[in-house]
Design a protein around this nucleic acid. Structure first.
Lengths: 237, 237
DNA sequence: ATAGAATTCAAACGAACGTTTGAATGAGCT
DNA sequence: AGCTCATTCAAACGTTCGTTTGAATTCTAT
């Protein structure tokens, strides 16, 4: 390992990715300039264009690097849970599906040293990014995983209209993203937060999400054309 | 009412505010240039600086205009609920506090014609905005209202540790913001959403939030130093 | 040691940004 | 009418942006 001065070697690519990741969280995608990135990485200004082509490509690489890993972990967790449930001749519980989806996120949040935490903050902020290019590849990157998990959720909640499940999943992703990305949002006025301890956030969040998922459905759902029993609620963890 | 060409009169200020509001949602704060704003508003480029001083001041005004109105409605709703509860010698239920806070948001979302919906999308996206200047005035603008509602929530949940309430309120704001701002986030991969009908989102969201709020507390809370009964759950709507 | 490919470097490119300027135009008043 | 003040306008300001260039340097392999 060498200091970031001089011309150490070919880890230039990853140094750029790391620096960009950190700066994107602090200043946003637009708010981070090439010069900020290359200065922080200790490389020449032209290095980004040489190694990645354009700034947009760099952004894409920053997300692909971790998002691939994250969604692989999610799919793997779901596969494991489904295999185990099949072995017992039972279906998956909703809580198991949720855990397969959200636990990898929060494990990555716990990785403060390797930069996983930084990336998860960035990811949470990017879900609402208006930039068309970013939205496009984020959707592509998520498509397969989302499909799998929604299907699993549908099957674990046979009595509940799919539209309601979709909405609640949307709410859950929102709560999670803000919990990760915007800890400082509440921190600003509400005094101190124990965001030192993301390990404690996981159970807090999962409890909240499960409570929301199994809450009674709003009245109009039962009164609507589609027949469905009253306030079907899945069982607990 | 005249077309946006020529030089109609002194509604220049509000035309700029409306145009900026709409463009900020589509392209973000940084992604929207002065030239885009003035072109959309049909005014001269220098008009923004003449009427507002700087771009940052314009941003501030865009938020103040609606956020003042929104938080006033929230406080008023809470006052009303508290007065009514005092008349009955009872305390507020958590669901009543939540409704006082979130209903004005969703009423504003329902205002598609007056631009309220546009603004609420913008607001949801801005909670995670890294821009320091934006974060600062957003916190100032929210400080008083947040204080009031957190206090009311604490009193409505006497058995629950305040830290847990704070976290859950954080989760709730996250779910709400995403529900409003990022409808297209899920839309991108999950097919069609009925975002035509925000009136139906309110009951869906409230059900979800209440379910999350009254979910059993995570285990470590009860096992922790602070004494508190098991899984205190507030009553329903 | 030396040719050739890969990488780094300082410098510059045109484009777009927020802001400023000073003259032109409008309405309101005496 | 003439004067005043607020507003609008076209044009330009200096700065920063992402990207490109071509020479200098380093690495790899013969």
């Amino acid at each position: 390992m060498s200091t970031h001065s001089g011309k150490p070697g070919p880890e230039t690519r990853s140094r750029i990715l790391d620096a960009a990741e950190a700066l994107f969280v602090q200043h946003g995608l637009d708010g981070t300039s090439m010069r900020m990135i290359t200065a922080a990485a200790g490389v020449n200004l032209a290095a980004v264009n040489y190694h990645f082509g354009t700034k947009d490509s760099l952004i894409h690489e920053v997300f692909k690097r971790r998002l691939g890993e994250l969604n692989q972990a999610r799919i793997a967790a779901l596969d494991r849970a489904e295999a185990q449930a099949r072995g017992q001749g039972a279906g998956l519980k909703p809580s198991q599906v949720l855990e397969a989806f959200f636990t990898p996120s929060l494990e990555m949040v716990a990785d403060t040293a390797g930069g996983g935490r930084t990336f998860m903050q960035l990811l949470g902020r990017t879900y609402t990014e208006p930039n068309a290019f970013v939205r496009k590849f984020l959707a592509e990157e998520y498509a397969e995983t989302l499909q799998r998990f929604l299907q699993a959720l549908y099957e674990s909640l046979p009595g509940v209209p799919r539209e309601e499940i979709l909405w609640r999943f949307h709410f859950m992703m929102g709560a999670t993203s803000y919990a990760i990305a915007g800890t400082d949002a509440l921190q600003l006025f509400a005094g101190h937060f124990d965001d030192e301890d993301p390990a404690r956030m996981l159970p807090r969040l999962i409890s909240f999400l499960l409570g929301g998922l199994r809450a009674p459905l709003p009245d109009f759902v039962n009164a609507a054309p589609r027949p469905s029993r009253t306030a079907r609620t899945p069982d607990a963890t």
